[in-house]
């Protein structure tokens, strides 16, 4: 239980009426916040499952269904668009980014957390600062490197190469925290038992760190699914695009918006990411604030 919450509970009890008012205010505030946060999603849900006539019929309440739920938009999505290609592109890219991120971060984070090396601290801080270079600052020169230098223009693998620029600093930082928390004693105990340092790492430290490594891995995965700028810059044909770019590129044709299909696609693509992200949100917050909290 958090300290402030505990303090709030310890507040001297007042007679019932005040308590009831407080509860009411609390739930009113909750409803207010929930309405703001969830309404756009609810609205997307409505459009995705309504028939097209229902969407524009002024005689229908926009907030509920008049005709029964329809899967027509989903049908169009799966049969007449590249939705599944975008979906697989997104997940293939994210998986490849995950692998690269782990290959770079596990050894790096172990070294920075455990090994005595002059300049290590400066490197860690320098790394933290690369958080602060947004993709916007890099996408123009990067486009030159990718399509000019490497010949990866309009290729989803360009994204695999580029996404670790933001997953690596973040994940290295997160993993650094995890490794620091593994007690030195168990590593030393393994060495006393006859392992050399590398065996100790391999057989003791890494297995103990599996939850941390997994967390970081899934985190890299979700970060890679959030990007828009790079995907917009480096992929132009539908077969190479991830969801965030493919959906609007194909379902908005000039002035014509296929609203039902757009909303259906955005929900199918976005909700899994949101769920995954939500599980790891606390680690994300820790990754950001870890440097500032000294307790």
């Amino acid at each position: 239980m958090s300290a402030v919450a505990a303090a709030a509970i310890r507040r001297p009890r007042r007679p019932g009426r005040r308590k009831i008012t407080n509860r009411t205010l609390l739930y009113l505030a909750l409803v207010f916040y929930l309405a703001i946060a969830v309404f756009p999603l609810y609205w997307m849900f409505m459009a995705a499952f309504k028939e097209d006539v229902d969407l524009i019929d002024p005689g229908v309440s926009p907030f509920w269904f008049k005709r029964p739920l329809s899967l027509a938009h989903f049908d169009v999505l799966f049969r007449h668009t590249n939705f599944l290609t975008w979906y697989s592109n997104t997940y293939v890219i994210a998986a490849a980014v995950l692998v690269i991120t782990l290959l770079i971060c596990v050894p790096g984070a172990y070294a920075l957390a455990r090994l005595r090396m002059p300049g290590g601290e400066h490197f860690a801080i320098g790394l933290f600062l690369t958080y602060l270079i947004p993709p916007t600052l890099l996408f123009l020169p990067m486009s030159q490197i990718i399509s000019g230098g490497l010949g990866l223009g309009n290729n989803k693998w360009a994204l695999v190469l580029v996404y670790p620029t933001f997953t690596v600093p973040f994940c290295l930082w997160l993993m650094l925290g995890f490794f620091k928390r593994v007690p030195f004693e168990i590593e030393e105990a393994a060495q006393v038992d006859g392992c050399n340092r590398w065996q100790a790492v391999l057989h003791v430290v890494l297995p103990v760190s599996v939850p941390g490594i997994l967390t970081t891995a899934i985190f890299a995965f979700t970060l890679a699914m959030q990007d828009f700028v790079y995907a917009l810059t480096f992929t132009s044909s539908s077969s190479q695009q991830p969801l965030n770019v493919g959906i609007p590129a194909s379902l908005i044709r000039g002035d014509i918006y296929f609203w039902g299909e757009l909303m259906a696609a955005a929900l199918l693509a976005g909700v899994p990411v949101a769920i995954l992200y939500n599980f790891f949100l606390d680690y994300f917050v820790e990754g950001i604030t870890g440097g500032a909290l000294k307790n």
Partner: peptide, 26 residues
């Protein structure tokens, strides 16, 4: 989890919903 949705949904996708909410006619 519900309260965090604006942040956890990919912005590029939730913006499609906003675009629909800001539609000139509907």
């Amino acid at each position: 989890a519900f309260l965090m949705l604006p942040f956890t949904l990919p912005f590029a996708l939730s913006l499609l919903g906003w675009q629909w909410m800001f539609d000139p006619e509907f």
